[in-house]
Amino acid sequence: MVVKSFKLRSGAEIPSIGLGTWALNGEEGYNAILYALKHGYKMLDAAYSYFNQDYVGKAIKESGVKREDIFIVDKLANSWHTAAEECLDITMKNLDCGYLDLWLMHWPSPLNHHGNDPKTPTLPDGSVDFEKNWTYVDTWKKMIEIQKNKPEIIKHIGVSNFSIEELENIINETGVIPEVNEVELHPSNNQQELYKYCQSKGILLVGYSPLGSSESTFFTNPELKEIAEKRGISIAQILLSWGIAQGWPVIPRSQNPARLSANLDLVDLTEDEIAKVTAIGNAHKRRFVLASWHTFSD
């Protein structure tokens, strides 16, 4: 049976599959989130910088699902690193959900809070406008302080898009290990070195973009198609099942009710099937999520 949850280092449990809420905007996005909650999703992956927290909060409230039955993740925006507590206050007002199960630093990239754009401020030459005299280590220290002072609001803290070097830096500077590192994870970007490091530290990797992207070749790959057809399920279901079998929760995103339901119907892959999916990914290595404000070490 496919595992339904993973344990954080603290002993708390996080569902093995959640709904990514990026680009789920307006009434259509609200309806997708509401459908997901009403049909079995137990985790929502949200973020201040998605600019849709009000719709996420509305769906939570109107779903009829008990708050304690939903694992809610939200993220500190890049341009709010120096105003983390204020960002949290706005987030809690928008979501109106009482508390966050997990609060993440979205990227290790402090951008100018008073810049010319709320998401990606730039300098006159077009380059990214970073905060001066402030680092992601400072941000991590602030998040630790906030969580310590507001344990009833922030149950757990972690990071997103962190490399081994960046994790080492915040751990060495503070002695506090994040419980989660949410990163891009799929067969073409399986991040095994990072996974092994995180395992050694008790950090749970959580995989966003588990299906790659619209540019990936997964959905036209004949070997994946063969595995899916033998199982009588979709390639998406194979990819999600592979991620959970690898040892991490997965966060797919969809607005299509049929796909939302199918993404919850996963299977136990055999060792041979897991090996085949891994080999397919290794033969077509690629990272799909790139950011002007961050350069990945790989």
Rank of each mutant, 00 (worst) to 15 (best):
L44F: 12
L44K: 03
F51H: 13
V277G: 00
I203R: 03
N256M: 02
P151H: 10
S209L: 07
N190K: 01
N94F: 13
T82V: 15
I146R: 07
S234H: 12
L194V: 09
Y35D: 04
H114M: 08
W80V: 02
I14E: 05
L264G: 00
V180N: 04
E173Y: 01
W134F: 10
A291L: 14
D101E: 06
I227L: 10
L104R: 14
K225Q: 09
L260R: 03
L104A: 05
L24P: 00
V206Q: 09
V2M: 13
I171P: 14
G20V: 15
A23I: 15
Q237E: 05
K75G: 02
D272S: 08
T295K: 13
H39K: 12
I164W: 04
I177A: 06
Y208M: 03
V206C: 05
F51P: 01
S160V: 08
V176C: 02
V159S: 09
E166V: 08
T217F: 02
S234Y: 14
L260G: 05
E168G: 10
A283E: 02
E152K: 05
D117L: 11
N172H: 13
K66M: 04
Y41V: 10
G98N: 05
F6Y: 12
Y136P: 11
H113M: 09
A83G: 13
E85S: 02
L240N: 02
S79N: 13
Y208K: 03
N190P: 15
E173L: 07
P257H: 04
N282C: 02
P257L: 03
P257E: 00
I235A: 04
C87E: 09
P210H: 00
V159E: 08
E223K: 12
Q192W: 07
S297H: 13
K119M: 14
K38M: 04
D96S: 14
L211S: 04
I171A: 03
A262V: 00
V65W: 06
P118N: 14
G64A: 01
Q191N: 10
C87D: 15
R286C: 11
E173K: 13
L194K: 01
R9Q: 10
I60T: 06
L8T: 13
L240Y: 01
T295S: 07
W242E: 00
P15I: 07
E168K: 15
